[in-house]
Amino acid sequence: MEKTSDMAPRKGRGELRDQPQRTRAALLILADGRFPAGGHAHSGGAEAAVKAGRLTDAASLETFCRGRLWTAGLTAAGISAAAAAGLDPLALDEAADARTPSAALRAAARRLGRQMMRAARAAWPCAELDALAAARPRGVHQPVVLGAAARAAGLGPSDAAYAAAYEAVSGPATAAVRLLGLDPFQATAVLARLAPELDDVATRAAEAAVRAGYEGIGVLPAGSAPLLDITAEQHAGWPVRLFAS
């Protein structure tokens, strides 16, 4: 894979914009919770929040998801959009490291990245995915792979941002159903109420990816959620847990 500085766009200006979509249905496949990329095993911090008593019902699930969406979700969506736009995935992986202070979350993101890479290479085989997998056999951060997979599927930066943002809230919502015995209808209603903000986050992330093409990867969002980082490290040390993170 061509290696370039994170200060320079790898592609010409025109190519940084959304490519014409080959098929919108590819986005449904990529964002589907049944896409075999291992996401179902992770609660996005919900398991630790339930244990700490901060996530108890549909209302606290909504605030939890809203906070996660605008921090870790926006950050992941920016990285995914930039990867889908064709910015250097290895520089993006480094940027994801810097945006993930928790060692436990970095390990989880790479594990998920490896799993998504396997699924993506089977679904949308291409030389770029092969090269990325070969360059980092131990895995790259999942949002980078998500963006690269979107690109391989003919999707654009905005699509990748949507998939990443949705995943940031659908993971905890699904986990809350299992952890709290929350009514699945209520969990889905939480997601529906967050839909306008998913639009906002995906739009901001895609805009940031375009800016990153001109100004460097450093301008991508770096939103952080202190409690998610703190509890991830604790959760990783639990002897018995339902979810991997």
Binding site: G45, A49, A52, R54, L55, S60, T63, F64, C65, R66, G67, R68, L69, W70, T71, A72, E94, A95, D97, A98, R99, P101, E197, I217, G218, P221, A222, G223, S224, A225, P226, L227, L228
Partner: peptide, 21 residues
């Protein structure tokens, strides 16, 4: 890059006081 984090709180910041942040 080694560390890059942005914290945002207060009026107009979505979800800042919830269980994730």
């Amino acid at each position: 890059p080694l560390f890059d984090q942005e914290l945002a709180y207060g009026p107009g910041v979505p979800g800042w006081d919830g269980g994730a942040v």
